[in-house]
Amino acid sequence: MDDRETTTPAPALELRGLRRTFGDKVAVDDMDLVVPAGSFYGVVGPNGAGKTTALSMAVGLLRPSAGVARVDGVDVWADPVEAKRRLGVLPDGLALPERLTGGELLTYWGRFRRMPRDVVAARSAELLRVLELEEAEQLGTLVGEYSTGMRKKIGLATALLHTPRVLVLDEPYEAVDPVSARVLTRILRRFTAAGGSVVVSSHVMSLVEQLCDRVAIVVRGRVEAAGTLDEVRAGAALEDRFVALVGEPEVREEELAWIAG
């Protein structure tokens, strides 16, 4: 790296005109998004806004209809190998090799990614311990038998294992208990403090407000607002701003009058 690059590092994640259509439906509509290096970035939006679709294209899991996605300045679709080396990914709701234990999964994943035997073993043991999956490992519990929260944790472990520069996490806190959530947060903060960048998607506003220094609100496949948390909030609570952008369906007094019996 030369001097110029170290002073103005490339964005951790950069989406330019990213687009994905499914038939007639536009899931992601020419999305532009810049995640500065070192930031803890929250992507929020209502269900079906296109968060997962956009992030899938950003990490190389879904071919874009148009547009560019760069990780650390590397085009994900032109130079996937280099981009994927820098990426750690936690997708939402996808299967894993279900018949491995957590430790076996990490061992497989580390060795598959060409990491040395002893490094894989040491990191796997540490990750299992820190993420409190050690007991399950002792019992021989298979990933397929894990609870949803445990799956999130082992997924995060696989995302972290090869020391990526950028973490893209889809709904990392979903179904994670409060104690584990704190552990997760500590790990992610450590990661950004050490110079890494984190992108999380969520529809829990309070969580994003607590965690992230930057945020983007995605509605109907487009980024409706983006910037630092304070810029986007503009003095209000993030949730109010979010609802203002998304639009709230009115519930009039006389509607649902029967609801309480």
Binding site: T101, E104, L106, R111, G140
Partner: peptide, 23 residues
């Protein structure tokens, strides 16, 4: 979740295993 009372592949997870540590 069925619980089995013993860890599996302890050697593998600890960095051992019969197979080469290649992809």
């Amino acid at each position: 979740a069925r619980r089995r009372g013993r860890p599996r592949s302890r050697g593998l997870v600890a960095g051992g295993g019969l197979l080469p540590a290649s992809p």
